[in-house]
Write a protein that binds this DNA or RNA. Structure first.
Lengths: 207, 207
DNA sequence: CCTTACAATATAGGAGTCCTAATTATTTTC
DNA sequence: GAAAATAATTAGGACTCCTATATTGTAAGG
């Protein structure tokens, strides 16, 4: 048991290394380095505050500020005052930033191929397991809360008998399966800690 | 189906970010940055050539050379001529390097906790899926071959009827299950491409 | 109102990754 | 033995990333 945990950790490490290395290629083609690319994709999807971006990328706010400055100098993003808080600034993509972001794939092609090589059921199970792991890390305060089903107040795991679509989203009022679990949902609304813990346990319990 | 692939990719990205951020903490306590720490742990486990290390870390040889120089300046590693090839050098940990390496955990504590939260069966399935993904990436030449069961010439997947231990290692002549799949085996001997492809297909096919 | 605490960013300074290109030394190939 | 390939390093430059400090705006208490 500790043995397989260690192997899993090693596997994740390998994939992390691969991810970082791919980013140099993917973003390098656009004249950006991995951190710049990551920030650009984020703010192109939706403007964010600096603190939020720093947490999501796992770097200090000072580092993030460096990167934003680099992107601003390239004319890809701008800092605008946040209407809700005079101390804060919102990082937004410029027109040039948006058009560049559109041309950047969000994940390395090879990874999609590798994942596609798994069977449908296996893919669903993999996504569910990874979702669980990430939720545990969030609970342990090791990573910031992400916009995922399992921490969303609209999520109802395993409420349908249909094995292919046992979960339910109360927002869109629709059933879906493991393969439909989202990692980054625009409509996400954070559930209370208890709600999330319950949902996690229920998601995990049913095989 | 493309949907779940995308979510899985996103999940892996989150974990990659988490991994990198944890490394700053784990290695920072030892006065190292992530890259230095990674190299030290590697060479403490066994001396390696620069090219090998660069491939495993996914950086250029020049970058690796920088990092080795930094470690050498701290007295943690030395470069020794490789007995087999006069062009090459072997990076080895010094006594100080070994003793420091022993005090560094190889994965963040929180990650072990998160993985341990999964059920036994789920953990085995997760390891198997990740193994598959990594093997596919190796096949696509996206990452260098690692010392894992599925690329080893001693690996025989699904040859036993015992569901708990269906695989077999021909080197130690022992049966084992999904949870025993190794990501970094010291006894690994690379199989031919066909062998590995066959083993991969067989590992995936059986449920 | 005004002070004190707190929060969101930015800047200063410095270490060090990480890249591409060019260089040196050695091995392999023909 | 000359030419081509390989292992590693050096040179030069951009930029991340850190900690610590400064700047500004918000919130709370007297």
């Amino acid at each position: 048991m500790p043995g397989s945990s260690r192997q899993i950790a090693t596997a994740l490490q390998r994939l992390a290394v691969f991810w970082r290395a791919s980013q140099w290629q993917v973003f390098g083609a656009a004249g950006l380095n991995p951190t710049q690319g990551e920030v650009l994709l984020r703010v192109a999807a939706r403007p964010e505050r600096a603190a939020e971006l720093a947490a999501l990328l796992g770097v200090s706010q000072a580092s993030l500020s460096d990167t934003v400055s680099a992107l601003a100098k390239k004319g890809l993003v701008v800092r605008r005052p946040d209407p809700d808080d005079g101390r804060a600034r919102r990082i937004e993509a410029t027109a040039a930033g948006h058009s560049l972001a559109k041309r950047i794939p969000e994940a390395p092609e090879a990874l999609f191929g590798a994942i596609a090589g798994l069977g449908d059921a296996e893919r669903g199970a993999l996504l569910r397991s990874l979702t669980q792991v990430i939720r545990s890390l969030q609970e342990a305060r090791a990573i910031p809360v992400q916009r995922m089903c399992v921490t969303c107040r609209y999520f109802r795991p395993h409420v349908h008998d249909d094995a292919a679509a046992p979960h339910h989203c109360a927002l869109v009022d629709a059933a879906f399966g493991d393969a439909g679990l989202r990692m980054d949902c625009g409509d996400h609304e954070t559930a209370t800690a208890e709600q999330a813990a319950l949902a996690g346990a229920r998601l995990l319990a049913v095989g």
